[in-house]
Nucleic acid binder design. Structure first.
Lengths: 133, 133
DNA sequence: CGGCATCCAGTGTGATACTG
DNA sequence: CAGTATCACACTGGATGCCG
């Protein structure tokens, strides 16, 4: 599972499978891109962009290219004017989506947990006030 | 699941839970740290360091502090000389490990998949040679 | 041992402008 | 529409040295 001798794949170096995973889907935007493509199926460039309001054109292009060379994303170009390019997950890419979904769910859980903590603190404070008064 | 209005938590901004997840465990080394702590339970600073041969002290310290403030990692300082500091996952941190393990497993799967592809290509090439000869 | 402070190079990332 | 090109910069992350 985590025996860690130096390994190679496609010019990458890594000590355990986790590092390999990170090199492929560990980019700042990649999990997000995969998540949205997994949910929506197929999206055009600008559709995808709108789902991530703060990403720049450049970053989106770049990250998509990397995902493409790693066999995660499929890029379909329609030779027409104006241009139309559709992005979707490959079969290999679809194998990541369950894990990505888990990450997303964990985020929701974390959010709820943190909010609950805050409310407990607030309740504690008002209780303190009462007992002080 | 992915309705995306701007949200706030602990000074963070995000549009969907996935982004929140990324802000917490999306650091370059964080999933790796969590993975190792999840497997080993409790580790001292340098023990943890040895599991990731290429990380620097500075980065390890920094990432651990961030994980600590986000409630994922617990830091236990033993006031003695030489100093002894042990790191472990909090209850909240332990909720991430299943997902992290999935990521690791996916990496193994990806690795196997890629190697199989290469062998297929190689087999294809030798077949081409034979049919050309 | 487990840090922290400082300095510094590299590059990741963003803003802007331009193109087929 | 879906990019590419260029510039500028912030920040990451590495090396080193010092401290409790």
């Amino acid at each position: 599972m985590s025996e860690c001798g130096l390994k190679h794949l496609d010019g990458r170096e890594y000590y355990c499978a986790m590092e390999l995973t990170l090199q492929i889907i560990g980019g700042k935007w990649k999990p997000l891109i995969i998540h949205h493509l997994g949910q929506q199926g197929t999206l055009r460039f600008n559709e995808l962009r709108r789902t991530m309001p703060t990403i720049t054109q450049k970053m989106l292009t770049q990250q998509l290219r990397e995902l493409e060379t790693d066999g995660i994303v499929h890029r379909e170009v329609y030779p027409q004017v104006p241009p139309k390019v559709e992005y979707s997950l490959t079969a290999l890419g679809r194998t990541v989506t369950p894990v990505i979904s888990r990450l997303c769910e964990w985020g929701s859980m974390y959010e709820a947990e943190r909010l609950a903590e805050k409310q407990n603190e607030a309740a504690q404070h008002s209780a303190d006030k009462k007992s002080a008064a």
